[in-house]
Write a protein that binds this DNA or RNA. Structure first.
Length: 513
DNA sequence: AACGGAATCC
DNA sequence: GGATTCCGTT
């Protein structure tokens, strides 16, 4: 009986964050209707009260340590009303995030994982870019300061200068809805906690966005309505010193570059939405909004969108419509049927254990209904045995570089140099993303100021890469394959950096929801 | 401890 | 689809 386990628990008025009702609806969270583990983790991470249980790892961007695995598991179990939860199970769930590139393991460090923020948030906060100063506050993820919080990536590739300061996060309900969960860890933080962070409470600005949007859209309660255009654009915080605003969005409308981003807190940061869901219906940007923007931001956004569409074979429909926008032809399309429903299958059904057993024992089936006729595709392990263990070497030094490049630097270069894209069919070069915006200066959107040629000379893996199952591709990309990373850095994967706060915000929101 | 396959649940 | 559960392996 999960009677007491309500998933949607709106924060009572006052302390919590007020999102419009729709934000709390299950539909707002495609994929999973309940809080997701990574949300939960972030949620814990943003609360000082749990610092002894789980905390950001100092010195590593997005890295966190589970100090008390059992307790984390317990909390998670309580949240999910799974009393039997333990770290083993929880960690299994975390491990599933590896392939999704939401998380990866910091090898050599016990109970230490690392969020892949850059890939996580980008679709939702394409312009967010936080510096990888390497300074990670104790109780909070690397929080960009008011001055560095959000950058417009391509324009800011210089090395950061430790101006990241610890942010503090207001807490929302972390409370489990389970009946027995009344006490202990579930409390709200004092207002003082909410107040003083200069860069801290930014996510409260989220409050404005959905609600204002609901109003401005005029279609309250119909978020599914297709907007004319949906672009999450953010402005520089300094311009709008609204302490409550995550994106420094002033509640005062009408400023250039300000956009009311209608992000469902629950939905917006579900990474799978973007990465694996070509459906425009599930697009994070599917809510209506009125906004203004500046061309520069627009360029970046469009560019990244274009790249995303390209890189992931997303439906072109995911590309925001914009007058004058020229979406480069997707020449890397697959067969029509495929492309229409393209999605990265992270966990393709492998030959099951049953099959394995059957092969071995040549009969025997303990389960009820059994695949009497399940064609067993013999699985080919394509993955090259890169048996090096660069961890010890890489860990402290190189990883930071990675972060700097991965997170901070937004690769605005195009697929151009990718020649044959990772995924794909050799497509004649897709020249720079052409984005034309009315009343804009000549575009040089695509040039990376650094122009690092991280290009692999040989790139022998590409073909192989293309043949490789998506799962493996991703795996390669994220696990330990520096080459793969290099490849991705060189333009295969074009993501904007993003801040963990965004996630934390979402986590909070989701948690509250 | 960490990984990942497999089945299952919701 | 996202866990949860179980478990063999490294």
């Amino acid at each position: 009986m999960k009677a007491g386990c309500s998933i949607v628990e709106k924060p009572e008025g006052g302390g919590g964050y007020q999102f419009p009702d729709w934000a709390y609806k299950a539909e707002s969270s495609p994929g999973s209707r309940q809080i997701q583990l990574w949300h939960f983790i972030l949620e814990l991470l943003q609360k000082e009260e749990f610092r002894h249980v789980i905390a950001w790892q100092q010195g590593e961007y997005g890295e966190f340590v589970i100090k008390d695995p059992d307790e984390v598991a317990r909390l998670w179990g309580r949240r999910k009303c799974k009393p039997q939860m333990n770290y083993d199970k929880l960690s299994r769930a975390l491990r599933y995030y590896y392939n999704k590139r939401i998380l990866h393991k910091t090898k050599g460090k016990r109970f230490t994982y690392k969020f892949n923020f850059s890939k996580l948030v980008m679709p939702n906060y394409p312009f967010i870019n936080i510096r990888s100063s390497g300074v990670v506050p104790q109780s909070a993820p690397p929080v960009p300061t008011a001055s560095s919080r959000f950058h417009f990536p391509p324009l800011d590739t210089h090395s950061p200068t430790g101006d990241v300061q610890p942010g503090r996060f207001s807490a929302s309900s972390l409370s489990a809805s389970c009946p027995e969960s009344g006490g202990a860890a579930d409390r709200k933080v004092e207002p003082s906690d909410l107040e003083d962070g200069s860069a801290s409470d930014w996510h409260r600005g989220m409050d404005f966005m959905p609600s204002r949007n609901a109003l401005s859209g005029g279609v309250i309660g119909h978020q599914k309505r297709k907007p004319d255009i949906m672009l999450p654009l953010f402005t520089r915080p300094a311009m709008y010193p609204d302490p409550h605003s995550p994106f420094a969005l002033s509640p005062v409308p009408g400023r250039g570059g300000v956009l009311n981003v209608p992000i469902s807190p629950a939905l917006s940061l579900t990474p799978t939405m973007f990465s694996y869901s070509p459906s425009p219906g599930l697009s994070p940007f599917t809510s209506s909004s009125c906004f203004s923007f500046n061309p520069e931001e627009m360029k970046h956004y469009l560019h990244s969108q274009a790249c995303s569409v390209f890189n992931y074979h997303l439906s072109p429909r995911t590309f925001p419509r914009y007058p004058g926008l020229m979406v480069p032809p997707l020449q890397c399309q697959m067969h029509p049927e495929e492309s229409s429903q393209f999605s990265i299958k992270l966990q393709p059904p492998p030959a099951g254990r049953k099959n394995r057993e059957r092969v071995e024992s040549s009969e025997e089936t303990t389960r009820g209904s059994v695949p009497a006729s399940t064609p067993i595709p013999s699985r080919i392990k394509v993955e090259p045995a890169t048996e090096k263990d660069p961890d010890s070497l890489r860990q402290s030094t190189q990883e930071k570089e990675e972060q700097a490049q991965e997170v901070d630097t937004v690769q605005t270069r195009t697929i151009e140099e990718g020649k044959g894209t990772v995924f794909a069919h050799p497509s004649p070069t897709w020249p720079s993303v052409s984005i034309s915006i009315p009343s804009d200066e000549p575009l040089e959107v695509t040039e990376d100021s650094e122009d690092r040629s991280a290009r692999e000379p040989g790139v022998p893996e590409k073909k192989e890469d293309a043949l490789m199952p998506p799962k493996l591709r991703l795996k390669r990309r994220w696990n330990d394959d520096p080459e793969a990373r290099e490849l991705s850095k060189s333009g295969k994967f074009l993501w904007n950096g993003a801040g963990p706060q965004g996630l934390a915000t979402a986590a909070t929101a989701a948690a509250d929801a």
